[in-house]
Structure formats: C-alpha cells, structure tokens
C-alpha cells in the first residue's frame, strides 16, 4: 500500500465509475449472446447475468454522477463518454469469441467481483455498501454458472476440453490487471470506502485453481499481461463496442420507449 493521502468526493466518484464501468461493459458483451448462444436456455442465462450487471452499473454510475456533482446522469456517463474516459478493466471488454472464451472470462471476473463486493458490503460509504450487499448474491450465481460450465467443458469431450483450455489462454493475460491496487484505491481503502484488490488474490487463486483442477484444465502462464484500463487505456475492440452501445443514444438524444 502506498502512503494514503486525504481522499475527496472526486476520488469516490472515480471509484464508483470504475466499478460501474466494469459492470456496464461486461453487461454489453453478454447481451451480444442473446439469440446466439448454443441453446435458448443459455441465451436466457447469459442475458440474466448481463441484466444483473446492468442493474449494478446503473446504480454505480448514478452514484458516480451524484458524487461528482456536475449534473451528469447515469445515461450521460454510459452513452456520452468516449473511449479514453472509461475506467473499466480490459478483461470485461474482451470479445466474446466462442462460448468457452466467454465462460473463461466470466469465471475469472465473477470470482474477482464476488470477492470485491463481499468486502465492499462493509464499506464506510453507505451507498457503495448497499449496492455491494445487493449485488453479492447476484454475482454468487454468476460464478456458479461459470463454474458449472467450466467443469463440463473442461472435463467433457476432447473438443470441449481443447476449447475451454484455449479460452483460458485467451483470457489469462487480462487477469493480473484485476489485482493492481493504485494510489487512489489505496487511499480510499485507508478511509474504509474501497477494498484493496491486491488483497483478494489469494482467495481468488484458491477458488479458481480448485475449479481448474476438477475440470482437468491447466492454469495458463501468459508471456505478457495487460494493464491500463483504469487509466482509460483500452484494447482495439473497445471502440466498436462503444459505437454499438452508444449509437442509439447519440443519434436520438433523449429517446425513450
């Protein structure tokens, strides 16, 4: 942990924005599966998980806008910011590719998010604590869903095993970024508002390693790791995601249905 400096309202707004952007962007990715999943039942399952995340994103972005005090609504934050203004981790913006890649991303991220929300339930910031307490039950199910599929694909047929292992390889370079605690997070954690993600790694490793072992999968050892999402640095695919997500709102400002 770095030396904690006094935190401001603006820091809390940034922190809420980070959490909200993670949820929003992954919701958008999961929504792409609707009508494209292997079965109708899985369309609904992934759609439900996406909607849970969208609900979390709405609360967090609305709170970020409120604390920021510049009059920006959740819609303004979701639809009118550009790529460099988004603070999500790169892992949530990664393309769905095949079902195994999506499941690998979900297992990795849900396990992380569950650990984080479990801590944030006890945040000294009452709004963040309340949102986390509601979300933790949702994310528990997301992790279970991803776990069940990882076990079945990993310990399934030769083809499903190959795809699942390949999915893990595709996602693993983006794992390390989840556990980087920067100065802002350290300062907010010192105030009891935030939770230091660096401290979540051990229990994350314990859960994920157990699932991979049972699924007869090997934990990848990537030769490089991603970083920069929290500073607004994103991967090439992200602009296309934003174009699709923001198009309607930007073309028809204030549109409702």
């Amino acid at each position: 942990m770095s030396a904690a400096s006094p935190t401001t309202e603006s820091d809390v707004a940034t922190y809420a924005l980070r959490l909200g952007d993670d949820a929003l962007i992954l919701a958008q990715r999961l929504g792409e599966w609707i009508a494209a999943a292997p079965q109708l039942e899985e369309d609904v399952a992934l759609g439900n998980i996406g909607l849970d995340l969208l609900g979390q994103a709405r609360l967090l972005l609305a709170y970020a806008g409120e604390v920021e005090g510049a009059g920006r609504s959740e819609d303004d934050l979701a639809f009118l910011r550009d790529e460099r203004d988004f603070r999500n981790l790169q892992i949530v913006e990664r393309p769905n590719e095949d079902f195994a890649v999506t499941i690998a991303r979900q297992l990795v991220f849900s396990t992380y998010q569950l650990g984080l929300y479990a801590r944030l339930q006890h945040s000294t910031d009452a709004t963040i604590a309340g949102i986390a307490a509601k979300a933790v039950k949702e994310v528990d199910y997301h992790r279970d869903h991803a776990t069940q599929w990882t076990l079945r694909l990993g310990d399934g047929t030769d083809e499903s095993h190959r795809r699942m292992q390949s999915g893990l390889e595709r996602i693993w370079p983006y794992v390390a970024e989840m556990f980087v605690t920067d100065d802002l997070e350290a300062a907010l954690a010192a105030d009891g508002v935030a939770a230091e993600v660096a401290g979540l790694r051990a229990s994350w490793d314990g859960y994920v390693d157990a699932v991979l072992a049972e699924a007869t999968l090997e934990r990848p050892a990537p030769s490089w790791t991603a970083e920069g999402g929290r500073r607004g640095v994103h991967t090439e695919c992200f602009g296309y995601l934003l174009a699709e997500m923001q198009h309607l709102h930007r073309s028809h400002p204030g549109a409702t249905w």
């Binding site: 109708l40 039942e41 899985e42 609904v44 399952a45 079945r152």
Partner: peptide, 20 residues
Amino acid sequence: SLHAPDAAMALRNARDVYTR
C-alpha cells in the same frame, strides 16, 4: 419444460427461465 445437458444444469436453467 426446457433442454439441459444434465440435472444440475437443468435446475439452473429452470431458475433462469421460470423463476426470474
């Protein structure tokens, strides 16, 4: 009714399809 590869997944699919 619904389709699922096994009983555990059937239970989860049922949760998503019929109790949301």
